[in-house]
Structure formats: structure tokens, C-alpha cells
Design a protein around this nucleic acid. Structure first.
Length: 562
RNA sequence: AGGGGUGUCGCCAAGUUGGUAAGGCAACGGAUUUUGGUUCCGUCAUUCGAGGGUUCGAAUCCUUCCGCCCCUGCCA
């Protein structure tokens, strides 16, 4: 070993880690690292959230800190316990643990209210009685300053009285709001007297009917972070403008102030990651539900058979930066294949069967082979696979008139049936319409196991199942949900719904080897050549259902399509 | 009276105080192979949004343009 071998350039840290290193060096937060993942329970988590989860929980782990799970539940109209339930399930599935630190913004309502009164007391907030439309008009535009509300000058006493009566339920929805008194001509529109509280006579999924006024995001989030002692409040780029208000609020409250840092959210080609659109797909029944395997939701990906390791790997690979970006779907698929290739057992199934009759194999005989579950990982053990006179192979693995460089079965040609025997096709049987009914073959008894004593080589090895013992199964093959790279970018007058791919789900039949009967829901295997599959929850003993997670790379198919 | 961000290979992304463009995905070659998969090995930015300037030397400093993203919810 010599020392200059270690001079390899280390991959650079992302800007967030660099910032934290700096903070630790300067003891900015006493060397602490405390993050949080703050979803609003108004929908299911998707892979975009996974990036935030991996970042926040990952950072805490790397720096020996903590990460809280906090539900940002300040809008009772959109939220539900069902979403809370699914979010916790998905975070756990991804492999992260918030231990006892499960928080809810709604648990801070009383404290939040006290902070609001404190702001009023300090003359930094007032009750406005303009209508929503008027407030919008008064706000001005991006290029024109706003003007002050006539109610902006109310006395502290009047504001306090009004705010208390708002809480007491004396006023209808929309009649008053609490606003911060900042600057109606601020260049940052967010700072033009932002709304802090609104009246909403609605039942909250956790606090029930205890409240009829609810705090807004900008007021709630920073205080929640502060209360929990968060050091780094990481959020996506669209909150950049809100940072000024985050800092303003905490400063004017004299509260501990975490550091908000924004990063670019994850975008993936041919998919939509906005909650609004995902909800639309679900409620308009364009997909089967939140866990439809075509959806980029964590529950959909789980059902599709994507391992959590692959999702985490993707998040690690795309990194974190501030430049808006769109990752190719292929990057995700690569991560899925990479992990499954390492862990998934490899068995055989046939999608579009063609019968192969081995004329010199004894009628009625069945021999059971012990075959490895994975050629690369002997530790996985073996399974029993039956072989008999009638075998099913993939129709596309036979060509009567083979294209150049075709390695599979052809008239007069010899191939290997994986781990079984060499067979040679000597007759193609057709019906009167010229359709192939079966292939008559001869096998070489010497080639048992897939090798011959004379060592002769064969170009092709085929997957197969024994016709008599194979089990029928349903397979669901998926394609992109959308026909364009960017479903958001549509021609005039069209929406993302107009580029839904009608072929995104194809249901087919398959014949699978008997050993697969033992699989449980969620088990993942590779079907030789066909791809990685995951047993679906819709399975019944009579009709197992397998979802294709992802196909294998296929350079032959690619070459043919050129 | 607009403000805040951001632009490095088809995609993601490193580039410490200026010293002469990491890595991954994709793609393309080749070797190995009981599936055309996997694995391995190789190729792939004279150039960093564009133009000026400073400098012996700039993706990195100055300057002027240009593109893209976010902000006018009583959503988060």
C-alpha cells in the first residue's frame, strides 16, 4: 500500500451537508442536528416525499441527531386520519423510525393561539374584516405595491377582543382573519400583511370541534419547528419566499430560530408528482386507487414490487441541489433492477406459450430437478422443477424463419432448456390455417442438467415449464401512465389527463412453475427473461396474480427494433 | 416596484482559497456467461447559458445580456 493511492477525489458533499459541517464547526446549534419530516395528511406519500424523508432522516442518522415526524394538520377541510395512517405506514416501509417523536401541529393549537395574542399585544398583528376578495385587491400585484386595510389601525384592545371572539365562535367563516402587520409595499408579496388565522367552523380529524379558528402554514410551521428544537428546517424551493416570514415570525416572538434551507424537489419524467393531480387520478377512477402500481405513490410502488432499498438508492443517487431538475424514469428502474438482481430468486414462467413435444421422452414420465433459486447466490437454496414430455416455451423463442443472429429455437436447431436438456426441433406442426400448433423435438438424454459430455455448445438457453404441472397465473404488465415525458407540458387546452396511456396496464395469463405456489403476497422473484415480478394482494389460491415491477434489459429486442 | 432563485455532456451531479472539467444513469463497443440478463473492461464535455473584462492562467473574480423556476390562497 502506498499513500498516493488515497489521493482519489472524494465525491463532493451536497450543499446541505456542507452547511451542517460548517454549523457544527462553528457550534451554531451547539453541534446538534435535529430535522423533521412534516407532511400534511391530505394524501398519500409519493416518491417526491421519499426524497425529503431520506434527506431528513438520513441527515439525522449520519450526524447522530434526531428526526421528528410531524403532521402539518392545520387545514381540517383536507385532512383525515386515513392519510395519517398511510403516511406512517409508508415512512416505516421506507425504513425510517421516528421513535417516540410523533408530533402534530394540531397539538400546538393552544400554544399557537397564545403566540398569536403575544403578537397582537406587541402591535404586530391585527384583526382584519375585509372580505377575501378585498384582501386580494388590497394586496396589489407583483409589480404594484399593496395598500393598507382600513382595519389595520385597530387598537391592541380591540384586536384582542375581536380575536378572542373569533376563537369563541361568534363570527361566521370568512368574516375576519388575523393578519401580521408588516409592510403592504414589500417587494416580497408574502410579507404584505400575511394571514395568520382564519375562521373555519369545521371538525378537525384530531382536535374535533375544539377550535373554529385555524392557524396558517406560515405561522404554524416555524413555531412548530421552534418548539421542537429543530436545527435544520428543510423544505422545497417553492418556500424560498416564505423564509423571510419564517424568520420574521420567530424573531418578533423572541423565539428560538431554526434555519430554513430549501432544496429542489424530485421530478421524474413520465410521471406526475403533484398531490392535486394524484388525488384527481384516484377520485376520477383513472387508476385503481392510491396503491395502483402505476402510481408513483410509495404504496403503489410497494405494490408494484419496488423494494424500499431501491427508492432510497434513487434518492441518494439524484443528490440534493438547488437547481430544478427532472430525473429520467430509467434511473429509478435501474435502482430497482440493481437491488432485485441481488436478492430476488430466479424462477421460470411462460407468458405466451407454444407447446413442445419431446418425441423420444417417455410418455407419462415426470422427473423432478433440483434447481438453484439463484445461480449467483447459492445460499438461497434450491427448488424442485418438474420435466416431462410436453413442455411450454415462449412463442417468441421459436422462429420458423429466424432473423440473422437468432440464437433461439429454429427448425433443425438445437437449444438448451435451462437446467434440463438439449432439444432439437425436427418438425413444426400447423393447423389448416397455417398456425403453429406444436413443435416436435428430440432431446439428448446425455445432456441432463444442461451440459453434454462431449462439451458441445449451444447458442440459446430457453426458459420453460412442464405443461402438465405448470400453474396458471394472472400477470399484470405495466407501462408508463403517461404518453409524454412531461405530462404537465400539454398543448393549449389539454391537461395531463389527455396524455394518459391507455396501454399502461396489460393483464395477461401465464404458466408458472409449481414452486411458485408457496409465495406470499409481496414476494418478489425474477422470471427468467421476463422481468421482476411481485405477488399481488389480489391473489387467490386458484388465481395467483403477479405484478411486473420492471422488465429486464433486452439488447436483442432493442437491436430488432432498430 | 417587482422580488427571490437557478443555469456544468441526452438525464442527475461534483467541482475547497482562480491552476487547466469527478462520479452515476442512458448510449455505444469488446470479454465472460446455463437465457441476448448479470459481471468485467473500454469509449462518451478542448468545455462549463451567451458576450465582454481582470489574470501567466477563469466553470470558479468583475460586468452586461439571455433562458428557466417560484411568489399576487382566508392551501401547504
Amino acid at each position: 500500500m502506498n499513500n498516493d493511492a488515497e489521493k482519489k477525489p472524494e465525491p463532493g458533499k451536497d450543499f446541505i451537508r456542507a452547511m451542517i459541517d460548517e454549523d457544527i464547526k462553528n457550534r451554531t446549534f451547539d453541534g446538534r442536528v435535529h430535522t423533521r419530516f412534516p407532511p400534511e395528511p391530505n394524501g398519500y406519500l409519493h416518491i417526491g416525499h421519499a426524497k425529503s424523508i431520506c434527506l431528513n432522516f438520513g441527515l439525522a442518522k449520519e450526524y447522530g441527531g434526531k428526526c421528528n415526524l410531524r403532521f402539518d394538520d392545520t387545514n381540517p377541510l383536507k385532512e383525515s386520519n386515513e392519510y395519517v395512517r398511510s403516511i406512517k405506514e409508508d415512512v416505516r416501509w421506507l425504513g425510517f423510525d421516528w421513535e417516540e417523536r410523533e408530533f402534530y401541529a394540531s397539538d400546538y393549537f393552544e400554544k399557537l393561539y397564545a403566540f398569536a395574542e403575544q403578537l397582537i399585544q406587541a402591535g404586530k398583528a391585527y384583526v382584519d374584516s375585509l372580505s377575501a376578495e378585498q384582501i386580494r385587491e388590497y394586496r396589489g400585484t407583483l409589480t404594484l405595491p399593496g395598500k393598507e386595510s382600513p382595519y389595520r389601525g385597530r387598537s391592541v384592545e380591540e384586536n384582542l377582543d375581536l380575536f378572542r371572539r373569533m376563537r369563541a365562535g361568534e363570527f361566521p367563516d370568512g368574516s375576519h382573519v388575523l393578519r401580521a402587520r408588516i409592510d403592504m409595499s414589500a417587494a416580497n408579496v408574502i410579507m404584505r400583511d400575511p394571514t395568520l388565522y382564519r375562521i373555519r367552523h369545521a371538525e378537525h380529524h384530531r382536535s374535533g370541534k375544539a377550535w373554529c379558528i385555524y392557524p396558517m402554514y406560515d405561522f404554524t410551521h416555524c413555531i412548530s419547528d421552534s418548539l421542537e428544537g429543530i436545527t435544520n428546517s428543510l423544505c422545497s424551493l417553492e418556500f424560498e419566499n416564505n423564509r423571510e416570514l419564517y424568520d420574521w415570525t420567530l424573531e418578533n416572538l423572541g423565539a428560538y430560530r431554526p434555519r430554513q434551507t430549501e432544496f429542489s424537489r424530485l421530478n421524474i419524467t413520465r410521471t406526475v408528482l403533484s398531490k392535486r393531480k394524484l388525488i384527481q387520478l384516484v377520485t376520477e377512477k383513472k387508476v385503481g386507487g392510491w396503491d395502483d402500481p402505476r402510481l408513483p405513490t410509495l404504496s403503489g410502488m410497494r405494490r408494484r414490487g419496488y423494494p424500499p432499498e431501491a427508492v432510497r438508492e434513487l434518492c441518494a443517487r439524484v443528490g440534493v441541489a438547488r437547481a430544478p431538475s427532472v430525473v429520467e424514469f430509467g434511473m429509478l428502474e435501474f435502482c430497482v433492477r440493481e437491488h432485485l438482481n441481488r436478492v430476488a430468486p430466479r424462477l421460470m414462467a411462460v407468458l405466451n406459450p407454444i407447446k413442445l413435444v419431446i418425441e423420444n421422452y417417455p410418455e407419462g414420465q415426470v422427473e423432478w430437478f433440483d434447481m438453484p433459486l439463484s445461480p449467483e447466490n447459492p445460499d438461497l437454496g434450491t427448488r424442485k422443477v418438474p420435466f416431462s414430455r410436453e413442455i411450454l416455451i415462449e412463442a417468441e423463442d421459436f422462429a420458423e424463419v429466424p432473423p440473422p443472429k437468432f440464437h433461439r429455437l429454429k427448425p433443425g436447431g438445437e437449444v438448451r432448456l435451462r437446467y434440463a436438456y438439449y432439444v432439437t426441433c425436427n418438425e413444426v406442426v400447423k393447423d389448416k390455417d397455417g398456425k403453429i400448433v406444436e413443435l416436435r423435438c428430440l432431446y439428448d438424454p446425455q445432456s441432463r442438467g444442461g451440459d453434454t459430455p462431449d462439451g458441445r455448445k449451444v447458442k440459446g438457453t430457453l426458459h420453460w415449464v412442464s405443461a402438465g404441472q405448470a400453474l396458471p397465473a394472472e400477470v399484470r404488465l405495466y407501462d408508463y401512465l403517461f404518453t409524454r415525458d412531461d405530462p404537465e407540458d400539454m398543448p393549449e387546452g389539454q391537461t395531463f389527463l389527455d396524455c394518459l396511456n391507455p396501454d399502461s396496464l396489460k393483464v395477461g395469463r401465464a404458466f408458472i412453475e409449481p414452486a411458485l405456489a408457496q409465495c406470499g403476497v409481496g414476494d418478489r422473484v425474477q422470471f427468467e427473461r421476463l422481468g421482476y415480478f411481485c405477488k399481488d394482494k389480489d391473489s387467490t389460491p386458484e388465481n395467483p396474480v403477479w405484478n411486473r415491477s420492471v422488465t429486464l434489459k433486452d439488447s436483442w429486442a432493442k437491436q430488432q427494433s432498430r
